[in-house]
Each structure stands twice: as C-alpha cells, then as structure tokens.
Amino acid sequence: MFTNTTRVEIQFGDCDPAGIVYYPNYFRFFDNATAGMLSAAFGMHKRNWLQHYGIAGIPMVDTGARFIRPSSFGDLVEIKSEITELGRSSFSVQHSLFKDGELAIEAHEKRVWVVRDDQGGIRSAPLPDQVRQLLSAEAESAERTEND
C-alpha cells in the first residue's frame, strides 16, 4: 500500500521542561504526516483534495502509540507513514518514527472519510474508487520536511 516519508526538525516549542518532545506533539507530527502522505498520493495539497473530493475531512476515530526513544530540540526525525488497511469508509495508517536511523515510536491511527449531511453535520461516506486505487498503490514519495 502507499507509503510516504516526512522529515521533521524538532523545535524548542515542541519540548517540555525536561527538554524532550511533549508526547501530544508527536500526534500533531503524525497528523501532518498523514496529510502529507495523502497529498503525495493524490498529487495535490490538502486544501485542494478536500475540495476536489467534496469531503469535510478525515477525522481520527482511533489512535495509539508505543514510545521507545525520546527526541529533543534540534533532532531531525523521519516519519514513515503507510496505509495498512482500507475499509468501506475508513483507512488505517501506521507511522514509524526514526531518530538517528533507529525506531523511536510506533503509532497507528484509523480515519474516516466524511462528507457534510443535509443538517450541516458530518457522516461517513464510502472511499471513492480513485482514492482506493491511489492508496492501494505501491509507491514511495520523495521525503518532505514539515517546516518547508
């Protein structure tokens, strides 16, 4: 399935008083990595694919992580993100964060493809065939840096 690698330079504001990344910031990194992966798969920026596919978003319905090694201000980490499962209206992503070439965090997330309903709320919608095809592809995009 589709994979993408994102490089992130850890900023001072990402860290807690102990000098290591405050754990919720990893989930922000993973959210950005998922958006970057989908942008690479779809060949367009998130603001464009939201409009192109007519969706309200891709909210997360499940997530978790296993923290192995901490990261600190100034570290350059790589996040390899991979689509691991395609459901009717959902998809799963596995993130592997590497620091100095060693696995530092394993994380997963499940997201749902949602559209606006007639009452202004949101509801799940089936993944379009084109999206399913693109996310099933065996491809690795060029690395990108979050701060670019």
Rank of each mutant, 00 (worst) to 15 (best):
74 G>T: 00
88 R>W: 06
77 V>I: 15
74 G>V: 01
78 E>V: 00
68 I>V: 14
61 V>R: 14
56 A>T: 01
99 K>L: 13
57 G>V: 05
81 S>T: 15
71 S>L: 08
84 T>G: 07
96 S>K: 15
80 K>Q: 13
83 I>L: 03
97 L>K: 08
74 G>N: 05
92 S>M: 04
99 K>P: 06
78 E>C: 09
70 P>F: 01
96 S>H: 10
73 F>N: 04
89 S>K: 11
76 L>H: 09
67 F>K: 05
61 V>A: 11
77 V>W: 04
67 F>Q: 10
68 I>P: 00
69 R>W: 09
77 V>F: 09
86 L>T: 13
85 E>W: 10
90 S>V: 10
99 K>S: 08
93 V>G: 03
87 G>S: 10
67 F>M: 09
80 K>E: 15
78 E>M: 00
88 R>K: 14
83 I>Y: 00
60 M>I: 15
94 Q>I: 10
90 S>Y: 08
64 G>Y: 04
94 Q>N: 07
65 A>H: 02
68 I>C: 01
55 I>N: 08
74 G>F: 03
75 D>K: 06
76 L>T: 15
72 S>H: 01
89 S>C: 11
66 R>Y: 05
99 K>M: 08
59 P>H: 11
74 G>W: 04
99 K>T: 11
65 A>C: 12
94 Q>W: 08
95 H>V: 05
59 P>M: 04
86 L>D: 13
59 P>N: 05
91 F>Y: 15
88 R>S: 15
93 V>A: 02
57 G>N: 09
98 F>V: 00
84 T>V: 05
94 Q>F: 03
61 V>G: 10
90 S>Q: 10
79 I>G: 06
65 A>G: 12
99 K>N: 15
78 E>G: 07
87 G>D: 14
60 M>P: 03
68 I>S: 10
75 D>I: 06
69 R>F: 01
58 I>T: 14
69 R>V: 08
81 S>F: 07
